[in-house]
């Protein structure tokens, strides 16, 4: 029998604590979303309470929240679709038809991530004001497309490079053209990694805050903006309602947890081989 070493025990306890810290604050928020205000504002945290659906009902019944939800879904959805349509083919071209600019193109796409969001948002606000599109969804979609195209492209290049070359060569020999090799071979074979890249770009724009804050004043507010405004309703903060809105805002990205962790695994499996 192996002796139990104290070092190992401490290590396991540290890990367990970290795992607890990772999810507990979120679980607590979800519990608070189900509490009446009196059960939240207690000096000693209450674990046992009578749950209520009032907070969630209130959130889902408010026009501002529903508009925010609609705006977020439309703006992020459209930007992701544009990112797919423009980003995937470009990534394939870089991955499979290397030219002497390939390195520069990859660096350019990455460097878009260096731009401070304020530096993009301030001039865009002035521009959209001048062309009369300030505070509209099209303005937000165009701005977000810059994010989605570059991120999808950046992540899809290695995904396409991971497709075995022999399969594509065989398709060429069978008389497929360059475009049908892309459509019928590369896309389906790389699909799993590509879905991960697309999900990642969605989470990124769904979570985006600064640009949406600067580019909207009333009509085009996305859900993160609406949620942050709920906290500014006077001194008497409706905690349960705020917690409910945090839960609503956090659910869509968490739906992708499985897809994204699978994506992460496939990236590293590829590295190992």
């Amino acid at each position: 029998m192996k002796p139990i070493r104290p070092g190992r025990l401490i290590a396991k306890a540290t890990l367990a604590l970290a795992g607890f810290l990772a999810v507990f604050p979120l679980v607590w928020t979800a519990l608070n979303a189900l509490k009446n205000n009196v059960d939240i504002i207690t000096r000693v945290p209450k674990v046992i309470f009578t749950p209520t659906l009032a907070n969630i009902g209130y959130i889902l019944g408010r026009d501002s929240v529903l508009t925010g939800l609609y705006n977020s879904v439309v703006a992020c959805g459209s930007a992701v679709v544009i990112g797919i349509v423009l980003g995937l083919p470009a990534a394939y071209a870089v991955a499979r038809y290397p030219n002497r600019f390939a390195g520069d193109i990859q660096f350019f796409v990455l460097s878009l991530r260096f731009l401070p969001p304020v530096a993009v948002a301030i001039p865009l606000m002035v521009i959209w004001l001048q062309v009369g599109l300030y505070d509209t969804l099209p303005a937000l979609i165009v701005t977000y497309s810059l994010l989605t195209i570059s991120v999808i492209m950046w992540l899809a290049i290695p995904a396409f490079q991971g497709v075995p070359k022999e399969i594509e060569e065989a398709a060429f020999v069978d008389g497929y053209g360059a475009y049908s090799v892309f459509w019928r071979i590369a896309l389906p074979v790389a699909a799993r990694s590509l879905i991960g890249a697309i999900a990642f770009s969605f989470v990124l724009v769904w979570n985006e805050f600064l640009i949406a804050l600067m580019l909207s004043s009333s009509n085009a507010k996305t859900l993160p903006i609406v949620a942050s405004e709920l906290s500014q309703q006077g001194m008497n903060v409706p905690w349960g309602i705020l917690n409910a809105s945090v839960v609503l805002l956090s659910l869509p990205p968490l739906l992708f947890l499985g897809v994204l962790s699978g994506f992460l695994n496939s990236v590293f499996r590829q590295k190992k081989n």
């Binding site: 990772a22 769904w206 993160p224 942050s228 805002l249 990205p253 968490l254 992708f256 947890l257 994204l260």
Partner: peptide, 8 residues
């Protein structure tokens, strides 16, 4: 999980 959450 934490990194997937919106920062807000």
């Amino acid at each position: 999980i934490p990194v997937l959450l919106p920062r807000v």
